[in-house]
Amino acid sequence: MTNASTIARGGGTSSAPERRRRRSHRPTKASGLPPKAIPYVLLIPGILVIAGLLLYPMIQVVVMSFQKVGLPQISGKRPAEWLGWENYTKIFDNDIFWSSLRNTVAFAVITVSLTLILGTAVGVLLNKLSKRMSTFVIIGIMSAWAVPPVAQGVIWRWLFDAEAGIINWALNLLPDWLSTMLFGRADWTGEPWLNDSITVYLVLILTVLWASFPFIAVSVLAGLKGIPAELYEAATVDGSGPWRTFWKITFPLLKPVFAVLTILSIIWDFKVFSQLYVLIGGPTNREAFNLSMYSFAEAFRSPPKMGSGAAIAVVLTVILLVVTAFYIRQMVKSEEIQ
């Protein structure tokens, strides 16, 4: 009777699974928050950590760049004196700033290009090796990538040491006629590689390249694993060579990977400091300064001028932001990032 009256009223009957399914679709309000607000609430802990570790120190550096901060201010004997744009005016009028900027840009352009080329070549090679051999090579090259920056500088400083370096010893093993034909000299005993700014940056390029290309290679290898093998088989059937296959298939499909790797490499290479510090033995050779080394020298070398050092750090940060924003904008225009 009950079922009949219910049907007559138009209520109908529903099975137990259907009732459970209806209850499962009801929005839960245990948290008391709208569903759209939950992702933003979950981001708050990460934002607080970033603000504490990055944003607050960055704001402090910007403020310090407009102040006079020396030993009296550090010791608390005097408050920081507000200078306005004076720190920026002084560094822009200093020839060391412009030589440091030139060294920074030239080093970054050369190193980023070489790192991407070598890393891509090694990544393509790893993709063609067997699984066991590829794993062996990856472990070997990632060991170099895992070396701390200071240790990298120590290793390469020892290799190019004027008295006990392996490089001078190996060059002296070359026949005199071959060494003279290649380098214009036969005797390499006591060659001071790390005294001249040009040779210092050649060693620095080798140091950073040695430690950076493994990350590029492994990233390219991961991207290559996602490309269907049928595309390469079709290219082989069409008679496409390796070079054309790379530019027509591999490179277009890996553009997002190359975009991220390029931005990361630019940021890393613009900020190189530890390796250069170890190679030249501290802020001694002004001709070999980059912006990071120049900022350190101004801030901590006696007498310390932390306001000037902070101003140089702010200029370096602005340059990185401009370069990164320009590169991202170009990628968006060319539809490299969808």
Score class of each variant (00 low, 15 high):
189 T>G: 09
303 P>N: 08
132 R>M: 05
96 I>A: 13
315 V>C: 13
164 A>I: 14
193 W>E: 01
327 Y>R: 05
294 Y>K: 04
44 I>H: 05
253 L>H: 04
127 N>F: 07
136 F>Y: 11
43 L>V: 04
191 E>A: 08
91 I>K: 03
302 S>G: 09
252 P>L: 03
72 P>Y: 08
248 K>W: 07
25 H>R: 15
71 L>T: 15
304 P>Y: 00
176 D>W: 01
120 T>D: 04
96 I>G: 02
286 R>T: 15
299 A>I: 00
274 S>G: 01
282 G>S: 11
17 P>D: 13
189 T>H: 13
201 Y>W: 06
254 L>V: 00
26 R>G: 13
308 S>P: 02
176 D>Y: 04
104 T>E: 03
151 A>I: 14
258 F>H: 11
245 T>E: 14
298 E>Y: 10
176 D>N: 10
234 A>S: 14
204 L>T: 02
253 L>A: 04
313 A>F: 03
332 V>A: 11
144 A>P: 01
252 P>Y: 08
19 R>T: 14
100 S>T: 06
293 M>I: 10
236 T>E: 15
26 R>W: 09
194 L>F: 02
3 N>K: 15
229 A>D: 12
278 V>P: 04
208 V>S: 03
259 A>D: 08
294 Y>D: 11
324 T>R: 06
318 V>I: 15
61 V>H: 01
168 N>W: 07
223 G>S: 07
229 A>G: 12
19 R>A: 12
